[in-house]
Design a binder for these strands. Structure first.
Lengths: 213, 213
DNA sequence: CCGGTCCTCGTACAGCGTATTATCGTCGGG
DNA sequence: CCCGACGATAATACGCTGTACGAGGACCGG
């Protein structure tokens, strides 16, 4: 359907051009508001004021949109400067985790290859920081592997069971307190942020640059 | 459609009854062979020799099938006995990771609440092992959090970039070697298993029972 | 004025999860 | 021995999905 009247048709300049950036930004907003299940090409197009199939000129598939949205989240992770290598690494992974938790849907996309420029830039930064600190060979790989693994894993866990996750898990544990005694005693409403900080300290304490050749 | 002939109709005992267990087992097999995207209620039913909507008598939604399939994977994780607490914890998380990697699709389901009996049993085992070792309070929570986070995170990473992941990531890194020099130098074809073992040692080295009250 | 190129959209299709409804097979009680 | 009831199965149908396709609109350099 063509816009019938000049008056109803948005003025030339008023209608912002559809760009890949606008699509990705709107996808992130939609995901933030309604979650992954409700992200639909049609709904996304509607919010952008375009036809749904128009999106396919800018993007090959819906998976592209998800990949780009995820990398946009990675783009929010600041690259810290200054301080010791340990401070820089801790700041990086803490900011990384915070970015993922600001957009909880992102943790559901962490399978699938992370080859976006923002993801690679952060990974490179991590490797470089550790290499500069003196980690080499298998130690370097293991250190980088452990830290990034720790970030994505902890974000996934926290997005899955948000603090005070309602009557769900907690009540279920209470009901089967006999089957899961330790869990029911300690794991009911844990402070995940504190656990992350302390766990990160464990990990960093355990790794020493130049220790194992 | 009714089976027309006695001869074509499967003999009484030959046709195994449709049970929840059979559905879940077949779902796991289908996921193993074709991955999550190709798991369809219709295809699953076809493999089971039933109509698709019949499944809905045993199961409320497709998500139920996925939850049950995931918990079935957790059921493959052995609960180690004997040895020090450190040996038991290491054995648990190693077996946990192996089970997830035997069914790579499982890492894509690690968002979503893990409330299945097998998952809870393993988590309880981990908490109990650490508590018995002397971890208490925030230290206990942080230790359990770190270990399970490390398992799920590392399995996700490895399922995402399997060893020798073809021309994909490696070539992309080579092409942009100037942008990601450290990554291109070290991260091309890493030994994830070795990185996991070493990283696990970091983590366990960093945590001491009864250290921080 | 006129191609040509970038961009937009309407239509259409196969496949999805699943609600509804009807029907089957089996078995216990009269 | 029948018959009703109930556990289990299946056919049909609905609304929604991702996206292929082709017909155009908008703008631009000549």
């Amino acid at each position: 359907m063509v816009n019938e009247s000049v008056w109803l048709r948005p003025a030339r300049r008023e209608r912002r051009p559809l760009t890949l950036d606008r699509i990705v930004a709107e996808a992130v907003a939609l995901l933030d508001e309604e979650g992954e299940a409700r992200l639909t090409m049609r709904r996304l197009a509607e919010r952008l004021g375009t036809g749904s199939t128009t999106l396919y000129w800018h993007v090959k598939t819906k998976d592209d949109v998800l990949d780009l949205a995820l990398d946009a989240v990675f783009g929010q992770v600041p690259l810290p400067e200054g301080g010791t290598w340990r401070q820089r690494a801790a700041a990086l992974v803490t900011g990384w985790r915070a970015a993922l938790l600001r957009h909880p849907w992102s943790t559901g996309l962490l399978d699938r290859p992370l080859m976006g420029p923002n993801a690679l830039e952060r990974t490179e930064f991590l490797y470089a920081t550790l290499a500069e600190a003196g980690f080499t060979g298998p130690d370097l790989i293991a250190a980088a592997f452990s830290l990034s693994t720790f970030v994505t894993g902890s974000a996934t866990m926290q997005a899955r069971d948000p603090a005070g996750s309602g009557p769900g898990l907690a009540r279920h544990l209470q009901q089967h307190r006999d089957a899961y005694p330790t869990l029911a005693a300690h794991g009911l409403d844990p402070d995940w942020d504190a656990a992350f900080t302390r766990g990160l300290a464990y990990l960093l304490d355990g790794m020493t640059p130049g220790a194992n050749p």
